[in-house]
Simulated assay, not measured.
Amino acid sequence: MKITALTGIAGAVINEIKMGKPRTIELQSANNVISVASLEPGPDTHLFLTSVDLEDISPGDVGIIVRVLSVNINMKRVIDYIHPVYYEERERLSARIQVRYCGTSMVKGVEIGSICHPVEVDVVKASHYRAV
Rank of each mutant, 00 (worst) to 15 (best):
M1N: 13
K2D: 13
I3M: 07
A5D: 01
L6H: 04
T7G: 09
A10N: 15
G11P: 13
G11F: 05
A12D: 15
A12W: 11
V13A: 12
V13K: 11
N15Y: 05
N15I: 13
N15S: 11
E16Q: 12
K18P: 14
G20V: 10
T24G: 05
L27W: 01
L27A: 07
L27Y: 04
Q28W: 08
Q28I: 13
A30D: 14
A30P: 15
A30K: 15
V33D: 09
I34D: 05
I34H: 05
S35G: 10
V36C: 01
V36K: 03
V36H: 03
A37K: 08
S38I: 00
S38L: 07
E40D: 06
P41G: 05
G42M: 05
D44N: 10
T45V: 09
T45Y: 06
H46P: 09
H46Q: 12
L47F: 04
L47H: 01
F48Q: 05
L49S: 00
T50Q: 02
D53P: 11
E55V: 09
D56A: 06
D56T: 07
I57Q: 02
G60E: 04
D61A: 10
G63D: 03
I65Y: 02
V66S: 00
V66C: 03
V66M: 02
V68A: 04
L69D: 11
N72E: 11
N74E: 14
M75H: 03
K76P: 06
K76I: 02
R77A: 14
R77T: 15
I79P: 08
I79T: 15
Y81K: 08
Y81P: 02
Y81M: 12
I82Y: 09
P84R: 06
P84G: 14
P84D: 13
V85C: 06
Y86W: 11
Y86E: 08
R90L: 01
E91H: 12
E91D: 14
R92S: 14
S94T: 14
S94I: 14
S94P: 11
S94N: 13
I97K: 03
Q98W: 10
Q98E: 13
V99Q: 04
Y101I: 08
C102Y: 07
T104E: 04
M106C: 10
M106F: 07
M106Y: 07
V107W: 02
V110E: 01
I112G: 10
I112T: 08
G113A: 12
S114A: 13
I115E: 15
C116P: 00
H117N: 13
H117M: 12
H117Q: 15
H117C: 06
P118H: 06
V119I: 08
V121I: 09
V121G: 04
D122F: 00
V124Y: 00
V124D: 05
S127V: 15
S127I: 15
S127T: 08
H128D: 12
H128I: 13
Y129V: 15
R130E: 15
R130T: 12
